[in-house]
Design a binder for these strands. Sequence first.
DNA 1: GCCAACGTTGGC
DNA 2: GCCAACGTTGGC
Length: 154
Amino acid sequence: MNYWLLKSEPTSFSINKLSSLPRQKDIWDGVRNYQARNFLKQMEVGDLAFFYHSSCDIPGIAGLVKITRANVVDPTQFDPQSDYYDPKSTPDNPRWITVEVQFVKKINPILSLTALKNIKKLHDWALLKQGNRLSVLPVTPLQWQIIMVKIEAV
DNA sequence: GCCAACGTTGGC
DNA sequence: GCCAACGTTGGC
């Protein structure tokens, strides 16, 4: 079982939105970065992920989600109406693979980026490195545990 | 295969 | 809105 972090701008998709869906599940579509996609491909059913809110008032970890389907072909790549349409991708050889996630819980209050930066043991984490823009990141079991302790201490 | 130009991300 | 950092594109 592995751990991950998934970034989203809450104005386009948020933990509240996910939790309000009838099945509390959604396809994590729209990732168009190869490094991020390669991490998505490694995800397995049962893996857990932090739901991170970026580009907002208080960026940080806003919830937990579980991977409920792996190796899902992102349908938006074939939709000419979609912002994520990729004319170079074909159904025979789809370029963009993702996962389905299910709501687990909200982190309230959000565990802010500022708070994460204050945890010394996390300094090596890619999320906190300068200039990091990757929207899908691995989390080691140790990092996961450190963050969960912080969340539960609130 | 190099690299300049350009676009995007994301914190502040 | 600014800007640094990074990825991608495309000419050569």
